[in-house]
Design a protein around this nucleic acid. Structure first.
Length: 747
RNA sequence: GGACGACUAGCUCAGUGGUAGAGCGCUUCGUUGACAUCGAAGAGGCCGUUGGUUCAAUCCCAACGUCGUCCACCA
């Protein structure tokens, strides 16, 4: 054995031996209770970040502990196609080549993204191995595996058959740059500075940051308690505007803050979520003015006859301009007409942005929804009744709040990279279908259903299809395969959480595989608390809905690893910690247990660099304890009888075993790790071994026993160094499959 | 606006109804049969503020202050 433990010399070989020996694959024993964890799948085309390392470290502790205890233990690995995120990444690559996704039909684009992902997928798989994750690779799943797709489609069909699926026009968070809809929970808000314009509205003045939408305003809202405007409620006014007069009704809305601006709010049902609701309540028309590319659309105006030439010129000027650009032009014209009263340039407000940081344009679109009422009730009850326990307990309230307030779930996304809805539209029966496709010559065309019915054109449309938009009320068929020659499949894909919400089921081969029958429900779901609402809640809903059983018994939520400076890691701040550097420098063991001991209770915490170094030193300490034991093996002075020191250390060891078991039961990993550290270093090495050196009654058996037991206890926390020692010392078999220590009561 | 969490040694964080803990850092000493990625000894804290419960509070309760995070959002 070398003087110091060199992690680089051992890690790879040891992992290979583990994997090749089949140690990761559980032996199914009918009457034995299994222990199962499904690995939350990391992004297949992404890299390993510190959060992943923490996740793997914690799960591996539980897994190795149970495996050593003799439970049939399954840790099932997988990777995620990460729909929107991956598509954004891929489109960035395209942009570098001067291309955009609109130059491809969706089949080709899908294939290209798939190649891109498959090319990168092995990186993350290698990293999971490098972490030492003792996952069962023979059961590895990707979120777009064929059997996964099948189950997901069947679930949709089942929901549909039971009346839980519907289509509706809905105000969605639409990102014109990404070309897709985002769920509320995916949208964040950024404080932005936007001028607040005070515009003349007939005899009123209103304040708005969005003067461009005023052409499609359909009402004015005032607070019913506001005495200033009481008499106007219900009246219809003619208001002079940039393109001539508009008629508008004054409606009451208690949400209007009389103190904000002028106390009057303009209502644009087509482009504001609150206004959309208001519009439903008062039966206001929904008149869009911004198209799906984020440009102003004035066709509704320009198509009219007998337009004043001044107005025509203006409308033509705004038409197809980006929103902000058009706004500038309009402000100029407002000034010209004397309609602009003042501008508050200091105004700042929260603006919704998508995952990629683009501004969200609230838009009314047909979307697919799930009625969650009947799904969420049992999911809520499962946690309230304690059938599912959430650790740390204080996170539970987040779940309960979220579930209680959960509203119907928009499950369709206008992405290509994802699972396409198994919905088919007949062109014949739906003449109002809108198709965007590439012709064989590469030309991009937009057509409605009528007119593409010739078989040649239909083939062209099918091959070159980019997007299909079916108005509400369109006839459709749900089917895993095409129901007929004039049918086209829905181009929307499922929200990632719709499919990943079924992850514990699909990974185990729901509904009738042996694995599913044996391992489901799983034991622990361990993940970042950030996705408690997005993911954990959906898994519970679908688990219960499809099987009648909860998908897991315990939910353990770990905190977010912040950067060394205490801020959230982000590329723009340049404070991202690359775990690989730490692995290279200090070894995986040190990084893993360092992270685990950095967080005791699921709170967010700063990257514990000093602890990583401390545990690197500890790995070396354990290594050298083993070297010492090795060096004194077979020395003549060794006796059989136990002395006082022996009894002391064995007693402490027994206590340690009890403590570790107790703490792991309660998910107190940091404390368990530190107990072992304290025992091994400060009791075993500092006291017992130091005394051993000078003792006249050295008992090698005790010395060896304490080492062996310490290695076993430490193995879940620091798998590599302990296994390396085990091999170097030529102990029996592999430590990974050695038996967990039990308390020796005779002492 | 609503909620949750934090405030303990120079730094990062554990912890408990009854003389305060770890890692790192710091000071002094040390090449003793594994380890300088080490050993020995040590300094350092009215456990955010103010009240309350208690024989006893860093821990329980209330209020306040500061910070962080999440949710909802006002044109």
């Amino acid at each position: 054995m070398d003087k110091n433990y060199d992690h680089k010399k051992y890690e790879k070989d040891i992992y290979r031996k583990w994997e090749e020996s089949g140690a990761f694959t559980p032996k199914i024993v009918k009457n034995k209770k299994p222990f199962t964890i499904i690995l939350p799948p990391p992004n297949a085309s992404g890299g390993m970040h510190t959060g992943n390392v923490l996740m793997i470290a914690i799960e591996d502790i539980l897994i190795r502990w149970h495996r050593m205890k003799g439970d049939p233990t399954l840790w099932l690995p997988g990777t995620d196609h990460a729909g929107t995120e991956t598509q954004i990444t891929y489109e960035r690559e395209l942009k570098k080549e001067g291309k955009s996704r609109f130059q491809f039909d969706r089949k080709t684009l899908y294939k290209n993204i798939q190649e891109f992902v498959f090319k990168n997928k092995h990186f993350i798989e290698d990293q999971i191995r490098a972490m030492g994750a003792s996952v069962d690779w023979t059961r590895y799943k990707f979120t777009l595996d064929e059997d996964v797709l099948e189950t997901v489609r069947e679930t949709f069909e089942k929901l549909h058959n039971e009346g839980l699926v519907y289509r509706d026009n809905y105000m969605v968070n639409y990102c014109p740059v990404c070309g897709t809809t985002y769920a509320d929970i995916e949208v964040s808000h950024e404080e932005k500075n936007d001028p607040l314009y005070f515009m003349k509205y007939g005899s009123f003045t209103i304040a708005t940051v969005r003067p461009e939408s005023k052409f499609r305003d359909t009402a004015l809202a005032v607070n019913p308690k506001d005495k200033r405007f009481k008499e106007w409620i219900g009246k219809t006014l003619e208001i002079p505007g940039l393109l001539g007069p508009i008629m508008m009704t004054v409606i009451p809305d208690p949400e209007v803050d009389p103190k904000f601006g002028t106390g009057i709010m303009k209502v644009t049902p087509a482009h504001d979520p609150h206004d959309f609701e208001l519009g439903k309540k008062f039966n206001l028309p929904v008149l869009p003015i911004i198209d799906l590319d984020g440009r102003m659309d004035f066709s509704w105006f320009l198509n009219q006859e007998n337009i004043d030439s001044k107005y025509r010129t203006r409308a033509e000027k705004y038409h197809k301009k980006k929103v902000r650009e058009a706004r500038k032009l309009m402000v100029e014209d407002l000034k010209e007409d004397g309609l602009l009263i003042k501008v508050d340039d200091a105004y700042s407000h929260p603006v919704p942005v998508c995952k990629a940081g683009h501004e969200i344009e609230p838009t009314v679109l047909p979307n697919w929804f799930i009625k969650v009422e009947s799904l969420k009730k049992p999911a809520l009850e499962a946690v309230k009744s304690g059938q599912i326990k959430i650790y740390p307990k204080w996170r539970e309230i987040t779940y309960i709040r979220w579930m209680e307030s959960m509203h119907d779930w928009a499950i369709s996304r206008q992405n290509v990279w994802g699972i396409r809805l198994p919905v088919w539209y007949s062109l014949e029966k739906n003449p109002t279908l809108q198709l965007t496709y590439l012709k064989t010559d590469g030309q991009r065309v937009l057509r409605s259903g009528q007119g593409v019915l010739s078989s040649k054109e239909l083939d062209e449309a099918r091959d070159g299809l980019q997007q299909l938009s079916a108005p509400i009320g369109s006839e459709y068929v749900i089917s895993q395969t095409s129901p007929g020659s004039d049918y086209l499949q829905e181009t929307d894909t499922f929200d990632t959480w719709f499919s990943s919400g079924q992850w514990p089921l699909v990974t185990l081969g729901y509904p009738d595989s042996n694995d599913f029958k044996y391992f489901y429900p799983t034991d622990v779901m361990e993940t970042a608390w950030e996705i408690l609402s997005k993911w954990v809640s959906r898994m519970i809903m679908f688990g219960i809905y499809l099987t009648g059983k909860v998908p897991f018994k315990d939910v353990y939520l770990h905190g977010i690893v912040r950067a060394l400076d205490g801020r959230k890691m982000s590329k723009s701040l340049g404070n991202v910690i690359n775990p690989e550097e730490y692995i290279e420098q200090y070894g995986v063991d040190a990084l893993r247990i360092g992270l685990v001991s950095g967080t005791a209770n699921g709170k967010d915490f700063n990257f514990p660099k000093d602890r990583v170094i401390a545990f690197r030193n500890f790995a070396n300490k354990v290594w050298n304890i083993a070297r010492f034991v090795n060096s004194v093996q077979g020395l003549a002075s060794s006796v059989q009888t136990e002395n006082e020191d022996d009894r002391l250390i064995l007693n402490d060891l027994n206590k340690l075993i009890k403590d570790v078991d107790r703490l792991l039961e309660k998910f107190r990993f940091a404390e368990a790790g530190e107990k072992i550290y304290e025992f091994v270093w400060h009791k075993f090495a500092d006291v017992y071994i130091e005394k051993y050196k000078n003792s006249k009654t050295q008992n090698f058996q005790t010395l060896n026993h304490v080492l062996v037991t310490s290695l076993k206890l430490l193995h879940p926390f620091m798998p590599f160094v302990t296994e390396a020692i085990w091999q170097e010392m030529k102990f029996d078999g592999q430590l990974i499959t050695a038996s967990w220590p039990i308390i020796n009561d005779q002492k």
